[in-house]
Write a protein that binds this DNA or RNA. Structure first.
Length: 627
RNA sequence: GCGCCGGUGGUCUAGUGGUAGGACAUGAGCUUCCCAAGCUCAUAGCCCGGGUUCAAUUCCCGGCCGGCGCACCA
């Protein structure tokens, strides 16, 4: 979907990001490679703070566990996960118009063959030639054109020579699935439990675009919540009243599709969001986005269309942010069911299930046999095992068969495996006594469950970008244009700037001391004595530093009485003057959210300087569907 | 990967077949008692490779990078 674009903002942001050290293309002195970025000092700080805020919300406060698994992953993992198949697109290129097409799809459409991908690129190329297929774009013949496999995973090899093939992981999730047996043991085999990971993933994108939005190496913050689909419910009451702006699949399909505004509770009740678990995380995340400064007017939850779903997903909602006029996915909330664990169980042979005891042991009467092998063994020899299986099967199916002196079972004959006449079963008579048939009481204390997986997967780089774009503001201060980032104090790479009003008469020394004290107290501090005071405020504004403390003559002249400093707030440019000895505590309170700057103004009064001009933020775009 | 457009100090840009000028930013200093002021000085640039040419940042070809469109986006 397109909405009225704001490419100017994007340009301004990219320029600022590079100039101020947020992020920039990596390896530029060697020409660079598309899709790789280096986070500069400010960007690395911002990214780290976003990761910390995520960890705080989705790991610590939820009581989940965090792990770190390798990025280099052996091929077998992706065979089992389905990534090898679904990542491997067959591409054929039109020699005339240059359009790329899915070669397997062309063959499937023309021949009715299903799953053409499975026959290999060479055979698909042959089929295209045999059927004389043409380019759907321009009609040029495609016969003789090469069919290439394009895999979006980065390939590598472990060890020397033609050793073990491996891939850089395209998502951190597989690391958590593969280690499930260990993690389940750690969780004392108690469902539900959540495993999180913040780490790098790699996707060999065909065409990296738009700055940090589509890159080839990305940081993901993923949570895999393992639940028993029958018995585990989320603590929905915690988020039931969170308002969501939803864009369900049904609305996307219709011409005049509209957003649905609903609380989490209503969304479940009205069946808009099917999974309560997904709904729970939509609510949790909605609050978190607000906490980190995402503009909620430029934010929505969009349900995946059926054809859009990943191979593993049963249902999926994306959190989307409006960026530069486009809706961009910043988080996927996928209900992965037991897809991953079941596939890894089947492929590896390991146990990916959890034993779930019943509240009460269940006792059932079950007809069963307990065959006397000392009798059956000598009689049936190698086939005794098959006979026993047939007896067990028959007991469950037809207990009445055991009423006579003998019981007749049919087992597959030897000729069956040779594909002979197809009806090669052998009938055998077994003395009922040897079958030892009885209706027995069987007590079951629980059952093994393969957990389902609820996965909120966040793109950290996209969040960095979203926070930057959504907090980028311009206004006027005393008639001068100003650019600033209205970053939440929690996220700001630098928490406080410390300046001497002028670098003389001991102001510089005192300011350096103050900066050192604040650093000692654990704050991220920038010291700056270059240029006039206004210039220094502007520098900090541009990187989103929320507070600046300035040492002036009242600081040093009033030293006997403790001295005072001014503290200036970024968005309003309002200053207060407070005793220097109280600064550390006050900043800590501001950081923790215990007080806000208005509280400080109420307490200490506002410092009047030159006439202030009204601050006015950028007009925000107002995205609506169908625009 | 295809098509169109582009690539000049850190950033934004002017300009040229004889290797470049500005603005902002940055550094040093002067000035200045709180919001990008002024003055002086300084640092710093033609994306890479090939071709044409006496000479290429400029023209041609290829590559790389960026923006947009197509395709792709598990």
């Amino acid at each position: 979907m397109r909405i009225a674009g704001d490419a100017a903002t994007t340009e301004r942001l990219v320029e600022l990001a590079k100039r101020r050290g947020f992020y920039f293309p990596a390896n530029e002195v060697y020409g660079g490679v598309a899709g790789f970025y280096t986070y500069g000092p400010e960007g690395a700080g911002l990214k780290r703070n976003i990761e910390s805020a995520w960890r705080d919300r989705f790991v610590t406060r939820e009581g989940h566990m965090e792990i770190e698994s390798p990025t280099v992953t052996p091929e077998a993992v992706f065979e089992a996960s389905g990534h090898l198949d679904t990542f491997d697109d067959m591409i054929i290129e039109c020699p005339d118009c240059g359009a790329s097409h899915r070669a397997d799809h062309l063959v499937e459409d023309a021949t009715g063959i299903e799953d053409a991908e499975s026959v290999g690129t060479e055979r698909v190329a042959e089929l295209i030639a045999d059927h004389d297929l043409a380019c759907p774009e321009c009609g040029a013949g495609l016969a003789g054109e090469a069919v290439s496999a394009f895999n979006l995973m980065f390939e590598t090899a472990i060890g020397p020579g033609s050793s073990q093939p491996a891939y850089l992981r395209p998502e951190t999730a597989q690391g958590m699935f593969v280690e499930f047996p260990q993690l389940s043991e750690y969780a004392r085999n108690q469902l539900p439990f959540g495993v999180a990971q913040i780490g790098r993933g790699y996707r060999n994108e065909i065409s990296p675009r738009r700055s940090l939005i589509r890159v080839r190496e990305l940081t993901m913050a993923e949570l895999e919540h393992f639940v028993d689909p029958e018995t585990d419910d989320p603590p929905i009451e915690r988020v039931a009243d969170v308002e969501l702006r939803l864009y369900p699949a049904a609305e996307q399909g219709s011409e005049d599709g509209e957003y649905v505004q609903a609380t989490v509770g209503e969304a479940i009740e009205r069946g808009i969001v099917e999974s309560e678990w997904i709904a729970y995380y939509l609510g949790l995340a909605r609050r978190w986005y607000e906490r980190i400064g995402v503009n909620t007017d430029r934010f929505r939850y969009r349900q995946h269309l059926p054809g859009e779903l990943s191979h593993y997903a049963a249902d999926c909602w994306d959190a989307e942010a409006e960026l530069g006029g486009n809706w961009v996915e910043v988080t996927g909330f996928a209900y992965r069911s037991d897809y991953d664990l079941a596939h890894h169980a089947a492929a590896s042979g390991a146990d990916f299930s959890v034993f779930e005891p019943y509240d009460e042991p269940q006792t059932v009467e079950r007809p069963s046999v307990d065959p006397d092998m000392s009798a059956l063994g000598p009689e049936f020899g190698a086939r005794a095992g098959a006979v026993v299986e047939a007896l067990e099967d028959l007991a469950a199916r037809d207990p009445a068969a055991f009423e006579g002196e003998t019981v007749t079972v049919e087992i597959e004959g030897e000729s069956a495996s040779e594909g002979g006449d197809g009806s090669a079963s052998e009938a055998h008579e077994v003395p009922t006594e040897a079958a030892n048939f009885a209706v027995r009481e069987v007590t079951k204390t629980g059952e093994r469950v393969t957990p389902h997986v609820v996965e909120p997967a966040f793109g950290v780089g996209r969040l960095v970008y979203t926070v930057l774009e959504h907090t980028l503001r311009t206004d006027e201060v005393d008639g001068e244009a100003r650019t600033y980032l209205a970053l939440e104090p929690e996220l700001a790479p630098t928490f406080v700037g410390v300046f001497p009003l002028m670098d003389r008469d001991g102001l510089g020394e005192r300011a350096r001391e103050l900066a050192a004290e604040l650093r000692e107290a654990g704050f991220s501090v920038t010291y700056d004595d270059s240029g006039n005071i206004g210039r220094r405020y502007r520098r900090q504004d541009e990187v989103g530093t929320p507070f600046c403390a300035t040492v002036d003559y009242e600081t040093v002249e009033g030293a006997a009485a403790g001295g005072t400093v001014t503290l200036r707030e970024r968005d309003s440019t309002v200053q207060v003057r407070l005793p220097i000895g109280e600064l550390t505590d006050r900043l800590a309170a501001l950081r923790s959210g215990a007080i806000d700057f208005d509280g400080l103004v109420a307490e200490y009064g506002r410092v009047e300087t030159e006439p202030e001009s009204e601050s006015e933020s950028n007009p925000e775009s107002d995205p609506t569907p169908g625009a």
